[in-house]
């Protein structure tokens, strides 16, 4: 009987997230990060005349590196709190998940801490990517 009352009150007093505001913040920050990355890409490809795949690789390396540094400085988590998916979805999220896991486990030493825990959060992305690439790739290969 009590359970019904608990459920009733919990259902009545649901928490409303600021969905619209969060979406706008994600859009603006996500878009801005992609704009900055596009500028870096343009820099390498059109200004320095590097080859397309090399430019793309360099762009990724720069973004990953800057994210790792911002994570280490304790700035990135504040940006992430503001923008949500705006920083999780770009490769910044991947880099931050690895840098923050590694940094947090520092107290357990280099091997058992940093090295062992680096992929704690990023593992899901890599496994999902490889498994889906395998399945989709096989399908594309068979129907080519």
């Amino acid at each position: 009987m009590e359970k019904e009352i608990y459920k009733k009150v919990l259902n009545e007093k649901k928490i409303k997230r600021p969905i619209f505001l969060n979406a706008i913040k994600a859009f603006v920050v996500g878009g801005l990060i992609c704009l900055i990355a596009q500028t870096i890409l343009w820099l390498f490809k059109d200004l320095l005349h590097l080859e397309k795949t090399a430019s793309t690789s360099l762009m990724y390396i720069v973004i990953v590196g800057v994210t790792a540094i911002l994570t280490g400085l304790g700035i990135f988590d504040k940006i992430g709190q503001f923008s949500g998916a705006g920083t999780i979805i770009p490769i910044t999220g991947f880099s931050n998940s690895m840098a923050s896991s590694a940094l947090e486990s520092k107290s357990e030493g280099i091997i058992l801490g940093i090295m062992t825990n680096m992929f704690k959060l990023a593992g899901a992305v890599i496994v999902a990517g490889v498994v889906s690439a395998f399945i989709t790739g096989t399908i594309i290969y068979l129907f080519r």
């Binding site: 990724y60 390396i61 790792a68 840098a99 940094l103 940093i114 680096m118 990023a122 990517g129 395998f134």
Partner: peptide, 25 residues
């Protein structure tokens, strides 16, 4: 499979390791 993404993953590993060595949470 990792031909195109190896640079991103390698960079992430390297930079994460470096940051973890140098910085403190």
């Amino acid at each position: 499979i990792f031909d195109l993404t190896s640079s991103g993953i390698a960079a992430a590993i390297f930079f994460s390791f470096l940051i973890a060595l140098v910085c403190k949470p």
